[in-house]
Amino acid sequence: MESNYHTLKRTDNQLLVITHLSQLLTYATVFGGIIAPLILWATQKEQVEGMDAHGKAILNFQISLIVYSLISIPLIFALGLGILILILVAILAFVMPIVNAIKASNGELPSYPLSINFVS
């Protein structure tokens, strides 16, 4: 028997804020900044309105930061360019989760600059 029952997603801006801020776990643990948002996104994307879009944006941003960091390592030997990239990555990794947590609390969609679209 087919069911026409559709699960209604709940609005939970606080959880979206926590998901964005969980990226800051990178500063306490090496991969906590990608694992915690991944778990929150994977478990809540069907229940929370907007979690799918926010989670994908976060994962794309975190993966992009890893790629930029890996690219910058050999560039350290090219006139120190890699050091500048690492500094930019560190600033973005700290500031953008906070900016997007504020956006999420206001019901806005996230915006992460220089983010490559890995998860769509």
Score class of each variant (00 low, 15 high):
1 M>T: 10
2 E>H: 15
3 S>R: 11
4 N>P: 00
5 Y>Q: 13
5 Y>P: 05
7 T>H: 15
7 T>P: 04
7 T>K: 13
8 L>M: 11
9 K>Y: 10
10 R>S: 13
11 T>P: 03
14 Q>M: 12
14 Q>A: 09
15 L>A: 01
20 H>C: 10
21 L>V: 10
25 L>H: 10
28 A>G: 04
30 V>H: 05
34 I>W: 08
37 P>M: 01
40 L>C: 02
40 L>A: 07
42 A>L: 15
45 K>W: 03
46 E>C: 10
47 Q>W: 04
47 Q>D: 06
50 G>S: 00
50 G>A: 04
54 H>Q: 12
54 H>D: 01
55 G>M: 04
56 K>P: 05
56 K>Q: 03
57 A>D: 13
57 A>F: 06
59 L>E: 03
60 N>Y: 10
61 F>L: 10
61 F>E: 08
62 Q>A: 13
63 I>L: 14
63 I>Q: 10
64 S>K: 10
67 V>T: 10
68 Y>V: 05
71 I>A: 12
71 I>H: 07
72 S>Q: 00
74 P>E: 04
75 L>P: 00
75 L>Y: 00
76 I>G: 08
78 A>N: 00
78 A>P: 07
79 L>D: 08
79 L>V: 14
83 I>W: 11
87 I>W: 01
89 V>C: 14
91 I>W: 01
93 A>P: 06
96 M>I: 01
98 I>F: 09
101 A>L: 12
102 I>V: 14
103 K>W: 00
104 A>V: 03
104 A>Y: 13
104 A>D: 09
105 S>F: 03
105 S>L: 15
106 N>F: 02
106 N>D: 08
109 L>I: 12
109 L>Q: 13
110 P>Y: 03
111 S>N: 12
112 Y>Q: 11
115 S>W: 03
117 N>V: 05
117 N>F: 02
120 S>E: 13
